[in-house]
Design a protein around this nucleic acid. Structure first.
Length: 800
RNA sequence: GCACCCGUAGCUCAGUUGGUUAGAGCGCAUCGUUGACAUCGAUGAGGUCAUCCGUUCGAGUCGGAUCGGGUGCACCA
C-alpha cells in the first residue's frame, strides 16, 4: 500500500476499473427493488461548472447509497445538446454566424462539432466519479429522442392540446425567435419617462408619460382608469398622436393605474403585456412598428430601418423640436430580457405552436403536492410558478438545430398533415408525407420551426427508460424513484417534465425530488466570467482530488446555496488521507501477523464490543439520514465513528494488544479491526468513492468474493445488537483518556510518555476497563482510589 | 407587491419529531515527532443561538411581531 496516497493517478485508475468492469451497469433481471434516477442531462454549452460538480456529486452519493441499501439502481446519463445554447456554443467555437449560413450547413456543422466535443464534455462528469451506467446514454437530439419528442407532439396534437395561432408572443430580436415565459429574466435598466402632448378633439391637451416613444406609430388607444376623476369627461373622445397624427380613442379600463405617470397610458401594439391584454379585450387594431430583428418597420415612417433604441433617440429629439415633449425624467425600471443573450424582449405578433395548459393549473398544483420534496420548502417555488403562469407554453422556435415539428401544411387547403408515428423521426424539410392531404392535394409546405428544447428534455424519464429493451423492467422504472436537480430550473425542467408526464402518462414522473443549491463565491456572489470569480472543477480535482470535492458536496444541506472556500475542500482531502493511513496501519498489522479473518470463538475485549456497537449505531444513523436525503448528517455519522471512535481511540487502545504476545487477544483485535474498517469503508464508499474502492482493493478483495466495494449491501456487514452498557461506559472511558492526555499535555509530556500511576474514582465494576486505560495511557498501574492527585506523574480521574 | 430561505464560536456551517452542560471543521493559543498519519497528533480558549413578545414544567427548535441578508415570481404605460 502506497505510503503516500497519490490521488491523481489512483482516482483515474479506479474510474477506469469501474468503466472496464461495468460495475455500475444496470441489470434489469436482478430481483431487487428498483431505484430509478432521472439524471439531469447537462446542457452542452461550455465546460463543467463547479456548481455541476457539486449537485451531480450529491445525486451520485444518493445513487451509491441506494446500492448499499440493496436497490437495483437505474442511473442513466444524457446530454442536452440542441437548441439555442448549443447553437451559440457552435457559433463561438467555429466562429460562424447562423444568419450567414445555409440551414442544412449549419445543422451539419453542429452535429459534426458535437461529435468532436462530447467525449471531453462527458469526461468531466466521469472525472468526479459519477456512477452512472454510461451505456444508458442519450442525447436530446439523437434519433431516439427525436422520435419520442415528435411522438409526444403528435399525441398532444391529437389530444387537442397542441395548437397553432397567430398571436402576440414574447420575442427575442437577437435570437430572432419566440421564447417562452420561463426563458425571460429581469434586469434593472435606466430609462426615461417622457411626457408627450396628445391633442384632444375638444382642443385640450392630454399629457401622457411613456418610456417607449418609438412606439408612437403603434399607438392604438389611450387608457384611463374609470375611477379617475381627472379624465372622466374625456372618455370616448379622440386624441391625436404626436408626430404621426393618427387619431386614437380614449378608453376607460380598470387596468390603467391612476398613480402611474399622468394616469393616462398609451396602448401600443405591443409595448408590454398590458398592451396585449387591452388589444384583446377591446379588439384594437394591430400596428407592428418593430420587426422580428428589432428594427423599425415602414409603419414607423421616417424611422424605418432604425433599431428600436436608435428610433427612440431620434423621435425624442424630434418631439422636443416640435414642442410636443414637455418633460422627461430619468427612472430605473425592470425590463424583461432573454436569459440566454440578455437582450430586452419585445412582444411581436407571429404564428406559433402552443401547448394549451393554463386550464390545468389545479392538476399541476396537486401533482406537485404529491411529490416528496427534499427539502420540503422548494415545493413553494413550483407552486409560485404555476400560480403565476399567464401564457400557454409556446413550443415553436424559429431556429435550426433542434427537433423538427413532424408535420407539413397542405399548399391547397392549408390543413396540417402529421407524420405517421411509424415513420418517426422525420425531418419535414427533407422528408415528404406518404399520403396525400384529405383534400387530395399532394403539395405540401414543411414546418420549418423547431421544437423548444424543453419540449424534448421534459421527456427525459421516457427517453431514458426507452434505452432498456426489457419490457418487464420498463414497467418497474416508471414512475421514477428520484429526480435530482438544482433549484434554478424548477420552473423549467421540473415543471415541464411534470406537465408532459401528466398529459401523456396521467401520473407523476417521480416519487422523490431532491434539489441541490448553488455554489457561490467566497463572498456569496454568483460566479461569472465578468466578475472573474469562476472556480474550475478541473483545477480543484488536480490539487485536492475528486474525493475531496465529493466529501465537500456531501457536507452541504440540500437546497441551500453554499459559498465556495478552498478550506472546505482541504478538509475532504484530509479525510481521504486519514482513512488511507488508518487502512495502511491495519493492513500492516494483518500482514505482519499473517492474519486471516474468522469469526470463531473470539476473545473479545470491552473495546472490541464497544467499537462493534458503535458501528451498528453509526449505520443506523447513516441509514436514517440518507432516507431523508440528509447528506450532511449521514456524513457526520461516519465521520464520528471513524475519527473520534476508531482512529482517535480504538486504534490507540488496541495497539498494545496487536504488538503483544497474547495470541487470543491479538486475534480478536485484528478480527475486529478487519470488520470495523470494512464497515467504515462501506459507509464512506458513496461519499469518498475512489479511496474506498482502493482500500477495498488493497485489503479485502482477496478474501471477499466481489469485485467492487459498491457491490456490498448493509446486510453484508452482519451487524448484531448494540451493547448499550458498554457504549455508555465508553463515553466515560473516553473522558478518562482525554483527561490523561490533558495531564500529559500540561506537563509537556509526549502522548506516549510513560506514567507511573492513574487513580480513578469509580464503582468497582468499572475496573473492567482499567486494563485498556492502562494500555492506552502507557501507565504502569491503574488503580481504584479516593485520594487526591499528589504524585507528579499520577493522574486522578473522577467519574460522575 | 406576493412567496420562500437564511441570521448559531473570529470564519464556513451542522443541529431529526421541543428535553441535561448548544456541536463540527477551519483559524487561534499551548504542548508533543523512534512502531498509520507533520498534508500530523493532543489539549485548550471562543456562543445572551439577530431582537422582542407569546405557548410550555422546559424553546436554537413551535407561534407572532420587528430588524438585517439573499432568492424565486409578478409589476415594469
Amino acid at each position: 500500500m502506497d505510503k503516500q496516497y497519490d490521488f491523481i493517478s489512483r482516482e483515474l485508475e479506479i474510474q477506469k476499473f469501474w468503466q472496464k468492469n461495468g460495475i455500475f451497469k444496470f441489470d434489469p433481471d436482478l430481483e431487487k427493488e428498483v431505484f430509478s434516477i432521472d439524471t439531469p442531462p447537462p446542457t452542452v454549452s461550455g465546460q463543467m461548472h463547479i456548481g455541476h460538480s457539486f449537485s451531480y456529486t450529491q445525486q451520485d452519493i444518493v445513487a451509491r447509497f441506494a446500492r448499499l441499501a440493496n436497490k437495483n439502481v437505474f442511473y442513466p446519463f444524457g446530454t442536452d445538446d440542441n437548441g439555442l445554447p448549443t447553437e451559440r456554443l457552435i457559433e463561438k467555437l467555429k466562429n460562424v454566424r447562423t444568419v450567414d449560413m445555409k440551414r442544412s450547413q449549419f445543422i451539419e456543422l453542429c452535429q459534426k462539432t458535437l461529435q468532436e466535443i462530447l467525449p471531453d464534455f462527458i469526461q468531466d462528469w466521469k472525472d468526479i466519479g459519477m456512477s452512472c451506467d454510461f451505456d444508458l446514454y442519450y442525447s436530446t437530439i439523437d434519433d431516439n429522442s427525436r422520435r419520442l419528442s415528435q411522438q409526444s407532439f403528435i399525441d398532444l396534437y391529437k389530444m387537442g392540446r397542441a395548437y397553432r395561432i397567430e398571436a402576440p408572443v414574447v420575442w427575442c430580436p437577437t435570437c430572432r425567435t419566440a421564447i417562452s415565459q420561463m426563458e425571460m429574466e429581469d434586469r434593472v435598466d435606466e430609462s426615461k419617462f417622457c411626457d408627450l402632448t396628445f391633442k384632444l378633439d375638444n382642443g385640450e391637451e392630454l399629457i401622457i408619460s411613456t418610456t417607449r416613444p418609438e412606439l408612437l406609430s403603434s399607438c392604438v388607444a389611450i387608457f384611463v382608469n374609470p375611477q379617475d376623476e381627472r379624465y372622466q369627461k374625456i372618455v370616448n373622445q379622440m386624441a391625436q398622436v404626436p408626430i404621426f397624427n393618427h387619431k386614437v380613442k380614449v378608453i376607460a379600463d380598470s387596468r390603467a393605474e391612476m398613480e402611474k405617470g399622468t394616469g393616462a397610458a398609451m396602448c401600443c401594439t405591443f409595448g408590454d403585456a398590458t398592451d396585449m391584454q387591452w388589444y384583446r379585450a377591446h379588439k384594437l387594431p394591430l400596428i407592428l412598428s418593430i420587426d422580428q430583428s428589432g428594427h423599425m418597420t415602414d409603419k414607423a415612417g421616417k424611422y424605418k430601418g432604425m433599431t428600436a433604441k436608435e428610433a427612440r433617440e431620434a423621435i425624442t429629439s424630434d418631439l422636443k423640436v416640435a414642442g410636443l415633449m414637455i418633460g422627461e425624467k430619468k427612472i430605473t425600471h425592470n425590463v424583461n430580457v432573454h436569459e440566454r443573450c440578455k437582450t430586452q424582449v419585445e412582444i411581436i405578433n407571429s404564428k406559433q405552436w402552443f401547448i394549451k395548459y393554463l386550464d390545468l393549473k389545479e392538476q399541476f398544483l396537486s401533482a406537485g403536492n404529491k411529490l416528496n420534496w427534499y427539502p420540503d420548502f422548494m415545493k413553494s417555488r413550483l407552486e409560485n410558478w404555476i400560480k403565476g403562469l399567464q401564457w400557454d407554453w409556446c413550443i415553436s422556435r424559429q431556429r435550426f438545430f433542434g427537433v423538427p415539428f413532424p408535420l407539413w401544411y397542405c399548399k391547397n387547403c392549408g390543413k396540417v398533415k402529421l407524420a405517421n408515428v411509424d415513420d418517426l423521426p422525420v425531418d419535414p424539410i427533407k422528408d415528404k408525407p406518404k399520403t396525400p392531404c384529405d383534400c387530395g392535394s399532394n403539395e405540401f409546405e414543411p414546418e420549418i420551426d423547431v421544437l423548444d428544447t424543453w419540449a424534448t428534455s421534459s421527456l427525459t424519464p421516457q427517453i431514458a427508460i426507452s434505452l432498456v429493451s426489457d419490457k418487464v423492467a420498463k414497467d418497474k422504472l416508471f414512475p421514477m424513484s428520484l429526480r435530482p436537480q438544482a433549484h434554478d430550473i424548477i420552473s423549467f425542467w421540473l415543471f415541464n417534465t411534470l406537465v408532459k408526464s401528466l398529459l401523456h402518462e396521467n401520473k407523476n414522473p417521480w416519487r422523490d425530488v431532491m434539489i441541490s443549491g448553488w455554489v457561490l463565491d467566497p463572498k456569496g456572489r454568483k460566479m461569472s466570467k465578468s466578475l472573474g470569480n469562476v472556480i474550475e472543477p478541473k483545477n480543484i480535482i488536480k490539487s485536492y482530488g475528486a474525493d475531496a470535492i465529493r466529501y465537500w458536496a456531501c457536507g452541504a444541506a440540500l437546497g441551500q446555496d453554499i459559498s465556495f472556500t478552498e478550506e472546505e475542500i482541504r478538509v475532504g482531502k484530509k479525510t481521504v488521507l486519514k482513512l488511507w493511513n488508518a487502512a495502511r496501519f491495519c493492513k500492516l498489522q494483518f500482514e505482519q501477523n499473517l492474519f486471516t479473518p474468522d469469526n470463531e470463538k473470539l476473545n473479545l475485549e470491552p473495546e472490541d464490543e464497544w467499537i462493534i456497537s458503535r458501528l451498528i449505531i453509526a449505520v443506523d444513523e447513516y441509514k436514517k439520514s440518507f432516507k431523508q436525503y440528509n447528506l450532511p448528517m449521514a456524513r457526520a455519522a461516519v465521520d464520528k465513528l471513524f475519527w473520534d471512535d476508531f482512529a482517535d481511540n480504538y486504534l490507540e487502545i488496541i495497539k498494545e494488544r496487536v504488538y503483544g504476545q497474547d495470541e487470543g487477544s491479538k486475534h480478536a483485535a485484528l478480527n475486529t479491526l478487519y470488520s470495523i474498517l470494512f464497515g467504515i469503508v462501506c459507509l464512506y464508499s458513496p461519499i469518498i468513492a475512489h479511496v474506498s474502492e482502493k482500500i477495498y482493493d488493497e485489503i479485502y478483495k482477496r478474501d471477499k468474493n466481489k469485485e467492487s466495494i459498491s457491490q456490498f449491501i448493509f446486510g453484508d456487514l452482519n451487524l448484531g445488537k448494540v451493547n448499550k452498557n458498554i457504549v455508555s461506559d465508553f463515553e466515560i472511558v473516553k473522558k478518562i483518556i482525554s483527561k490523561i492526555r490533558k495531564y500529559k499535555s500540561e506537563h509537556q509530556l509526549s502522548i506516549n510518555a510513560p506514567i507511573s500511576k492513574v487513580t480513578i474514582q469509580a464503582e468497582d465494576d468499572f475496573e473492567a476497563y482499567f486494563s485498556l486505560i492502562k494500555s492506552v495511557s502507557n501507565a504502569k498501574s491503574v488503580t481504584l482510589g479516593r485520594g487526591n492527585l499528589e504524585i507528579e506523574d499520577t493522574v486522578k480521574v473522577k467519574i460522575s
